[in-house]
């Protein structure tokens, strides 16, 4: 009984539902990557997706902003079904920021230009305003002094913080994070997580795929455990980490060496 009844016990679950996944099915040829996913994301909430490799967490994120199409079920964003048409999808994508495991900064643009690129090309903002916004966001992620640097002259943690600023520059309603710290050195993970924590504290709605269990526990309002394309358990972090109700969750957490 995973479907729909996931509103109880949510810390900040009073906001409206921003994303609603209803029986989402995604196939790659004969392989079913998502096998009926039900999940609600409420305004202002941090929802963490955890689970073993290959269980479909990234796939769900990519379906959320239409980078992948789905074969079954539906995804509702701010009360409207995700469109299929490219132009309408672009409008939706502007409302969702996305941060990737491999940063994906544009190497031919400086940090500042990376952040102003979205406002410039997508929002058609003038150069001065876009630069101002970029400068403010770089300052917010603690990189004001790196504005003129190209990505090749930034550390991994710095690149990821620029990537967060780039996503924020579109003024999104939701931020999607796909393992934002998995490619980082242990020393720089903290700087990225603290930027994310700050965003969460400001009330940003966030969907975060992560292997950082301590982050999910501390910052997450809701945790969904994936296995083989399904959510096998979801609930507040207390439940998932201290009193998991399914064998799968217990297996996954003990595999990670999580001791509660």
């Amino acid at each position: 009984m995973i479907a729909e009844n996931n509103s109880g016990g949510r810390a900040k679950g009073t906001g409206a539902t921003i994303i609603r996944y209803r029986g989402v099915v995604k196939r790659y040829g004969a392989f079913t990557a998502l096998d009926g996913v039900f999940l609600n994301v409420h305004a202002g909430e941090v929802v963490c997706l955890i689970g073993p490799s290959g269980s479909g967490k990234s796939t769900l994120l990519r379906c959320t902003n239409g980078l992948e199409s789905i074969e079954g079920g539906d995804i509702e964003f701010e009360g409207t079904m995700l469109p299929r048409d490219e132009r309408a999808l672009r409008a939706v994508r502007q409302r969702m920021g996305m941060v990737f495991q491999s940063f994906e900064l544009f190497p031919h643009l400086t940090a500042q230009q990376n952040v102003s690129e979205g406002p410039r090309t997508v929002l058609q903002m003038n150069q001065a305003d876009a630069n101002q916004r970029a400068a403010a966001l770089l300052d917010k992620v603690g990189l004001a002094d790196k504005a003129p640097n190209y990505p090749s002259a930034l550390s991994g943690g710095q690149q990821q913080r620029v990537a967060i600023a780039r996503a924020l520059a579109m003024n999104p309603d939701v931020m999607l994070f796909d393992e934002p710290t998995s490619a980082l050195d242990p020393e720089t993970i903290g700087e990225v997580l603290s930027v994310m924590k700050k965003l969460a504290d400001e009330g940003m709605t966030m969907v975060v795929v992560t292997h950082e269990m301590s982050f999910a526990r501390r910052v997450g309002d809701w945790v969904a455990v994936f296995d083989a394309g399904r959510i096998v358990e979801q609930g507040p972090p207390r439940q998932i980490f201290d009193a998991p109700t399914t064998e799968r969750t217990r297996d996954f957490l003990s595999h990670l060496g999580w001791s509660g």
Binding site: R93, S102, E104, E117, M170
Partner: peptide
């Protein structure tokens, strides 16, 4: 991933080709 990042910002296919992919490809 570069195309994905640009799509995620809401850029169109032609914007992505001209502003993101070609500049890197030419280098």
């Amino acid at each position: 991933g570069q195309t994905r990042a640009a799509l995620a910002l809401g850029m169109s296919r032609s914007q992505i080709l001209l502003r993101i992919v070609l500049p890197q490809a030419i280098v």
